[in-house]
């Protein structure tokens, strides 16, 4: 008996969390697209952004979504530091070496955050537009979740402008297409790498702030791990290196996680919400079976 109300509720909440998943994956894909590096420490940067939103709201009293701005700033600095200290020595190293290095960076960030902020699970309640919330088919999406989804779109637009409307973006795209060719026409590839890495980290940290505004609870040093995992899956689903692919796959992933619940809820003796996780990964395998380079992959 898939109830229409439940279906609508699942679709809406799926779309909202999906937009956040999407933006949380874009940075991963940008870094892979340009540098061919899978950032295994991805989740740690998301966690960092979530803490920024938490601090912005609880210590400064500003809306947590301003954490996005803080995230962009912190991400830029951090991205450049990590690039110049570590990543640039690993261009010609095997793919595996970069996996290991980014993993270690992730651990370092986690433990440093824990040393400063403690191991507690933090959170806040922020719902400035609660009075304007409306109901669709008996489901009332929270205003802060809608705001978070809209911020994801805004951040995506920002990234779009940088990549498609600036000279830097042009150079980045050139490097993605043909590294040697870009060098020949006088592009400083080293600088483009640094800029892209920093840009990817910026977006990732900022997306952590959006995620915090969406979830509001459960902010702790190890919260990022699940987003590394989901980020990988979404990135591959959309096609590695493809920025629109990552976003679309994120939305699909969110949608699928939510809607498949309704189908599973009818089965006796199982735990449907837990099984949706299995189903989401099954979906990944099916997509790869049909299209081995993901939805938008080349």
């Amino acid at each position: 008996m898939p109830d229409l109300n439940l279906l609508v509720a699942s679709i809406i909440s799926g779309l909202l969390i999906g937009a956040v998943y999407g933006i949380a994956t874009v940075g991963l894909n940008l870094i892979f697209g340009v540098l061919r590096i899978v950032n295994v420490g991805h989740g740690a940067f998301i966690m960092l952004g979530a803490y920024l939103a938490f601090i912005v709201y609880t210590s400064l009293g500003l809306p947590p979504l301003l954490g996005v701005v803080a995230g962009l700033a912190v991400g830029a600095v951090l991205g450049l530091i990590i690039y110049y200290l570590v990543i640039r020595y690993l261009h010609d190293a095997p793919e595996l070496a970069t996996l290991l290095a980014t993993f270690a960076i992730g651990i370092l960030i986690q433990e440093l955050v824990k040393a400063v902020m403690g191991p507690d699970s933090r959170g806040f309640v922020w719902n400035p537009l609660a009075a304007y919330e409306f109901e669709i088919f008996g489901y009332k999406p929270s205003s802060f979740q809608i705001l978070a989804a809209l911020s994801s779109l805004a951040l995506l637009a920002f990234l779009y402008v940088v990549i498609y409307r600036t000279r830097l973006g042009l150079a980045i795209r050139a490097v993605v297409q043909d590294r040697e060719g870009a060098m020949v026409v006088g592009i400083d590839v080293e600088r483009i790498y640094a800029a892209s890495f920093a840009l990817g980290i910026m977006v990732t940290v900022a997306s952590g702030a959006i995620l915090a505004a969406y979830l509001q609870t459960g902010i702790h040093p190890y919260m990022g791990e699940i987003y590394t995992l989901k980020g990988f899956v979404i990135a591959v689903m959309g096609g590695l290196g493809s920025i629109p692919g990552a976003f679309i796959a994120g939305v699909l992933f969110g949608l699928f996680e939510n809607v498949s619940y309704l189908l599973l809820a009818g089965i006796e003796g199982v735990q449907p919400l837990v099984l949706t996780r299995s189903i989401a990964f099954l979906l990944l395998l099916l997509i790869l079976l049909v299209k081995p380079t993901g939805l938008m992959g080349r």
Binding site: L6, Y261, L262, Q271, L273
Partner: peptide, 16 residues
Amino acid sequence: YQSYPADAQDLTPVLQ
């Protein structure tokens, strides 16, 4: 009698 996965971010479907 329902459960949710360890890292759930949204319990709406179970709670609805």
